[in-house]
């Protein structure tokens, strides 16, 4: 193990280390803590210049204010409407593409695989004008499904990379044995490979959920009204209206950040396994 385990160091060093970690963590999360505390600060505190001291009271009304006087509830709902179908769609598509690219050998296999990989890296702006145009022509501009369709297509690049590498690591003998038994290919996919893909599906689902929930660029390009805008775009436009009302900006930020954060803590193992796939060989 590197560095040398702290248990082997002197008692003083161990003691220093157990102090240093939480202190470093506190400094690391300072911007976040500042915003979290501000979200519970009454407006009168901010007016009186009490920015860093303890809030004079616990002002949960900031959150009520955000919900009652802005479309925040609607924005969050819109985010779910875009995110959940995207997760399902992208994962479903990539289970199939990943299976095809990992199991079958055919001449254009690698070319198709690298098309997905390369497409996943391109800057969004090179797609912006044509995708927006296409969405308008399909009559899907400013709808949740117009946004979700694009996300499904784009995410299938990363997801294919992920699924293909995962399926490649499964024991191929299973499939060969099934073929010898005369099992149809779609049955091999459905009954043999798919059940083994559960951890990959879980990891990919949490990752895609976070990516899509946090997407801002496409939300601003493909939606325009509070009826369809997801929470990132909504928060950005609310920020323009809440000039210097930091207690509201903070409460809104915390609300917008909540779902992926909860998802992360609930599915931490899968999340990290997904992100670090390929970091070890």
């Amino acid at each position: 193990m590197f560095p040398r385990p702290i248990e082997q160091a002197s008692a003083t060093k161990q003691w220093l280390y157990t102090i240093a970690v939480p202190v470093a963590l506190f400094l690391w999360l300072l911007p976040l803590l500042g915003v979290a505390v501000t979200s519970f600060r009454p407006a009168s505190d901010l007016a009186a210049g009490n920015y860093f001291g303890m809030p004079t009271r616990f002002a949960y009304e900031n959150y009520l204010d955000v919900f009652n006087n802005t479309p925040m509830g609607k924005y969050i709902l819109n985010s779910f409407k875009v995110t959940v179908p995207t997760v399902i769609g992208a994962v479903a598509l990539s289970c199939m593409t990943g299976f095809a690219l990992a199991i079958y050998r055919f001449p254009s296999n690698l070319i198709i695989f690298f098309m997905f990989v390369a497409g996943n890296f391109v800057p969004f702006q090179i797609l912006m004008v044509p995708v927006r145009d296409l969405t308008v022509q399909l009559g899907m501009y400013n709808t949740w499904y117009g946004l979700a369709l694009f996300h499904i297509a784009f995410q299938s690049g990363f997801c294919t990379l992920f699924m293909r590498n995962f399926i490649k690591s499964l024991p191929f003998e299973l499939i060969e044995a099934a073929r010898v038994e005369g099992v149809a290919e779609w049955r091999i996919f459905w009954f043999i490979v798919l059940p083994l893909m559960r951890p990959a599906i879980a990891a990919l689902s949490v990752l895609v959920f976070t990516f899509i929930w946090n997407d801002f660029f496409w939300a601003t390009v493909l939606t325009s009204s509070p009826d369809t805008q997801p929470v990132t775009a909504g928060l950005s436009s609310l920020n323009g209206q809440w000039i210097a009302q930091w207690q509201l900006v903070s409460a809104g930020s915390i609300l917008a950040a909540m779902p992926p954060v909860l998802m992360f803590f609930a599915m931490q193992k899968h999340f990290i396994a997904g992100l670090t796939l390929g970091a070890v060989k």
Binding site: L93, S94, M96, T97, A100, L101, I112, M115, F116, G119, V122, I126, L127, V129, P130, V131, L134, L149, F150, I152, A153, F154, S156, G157, T160
Partner: peptide, 15 residues
């Protein structure tokens, strides 16, 4: 592959 490739071509490669 077809559903994935079609979607990816329409929304990523062709644009």
């Amino acid at each position: 592959l077809t559903p994935g490739i079609v979607m990816f071509l329409i929304y990523v490669i062709v644009p």
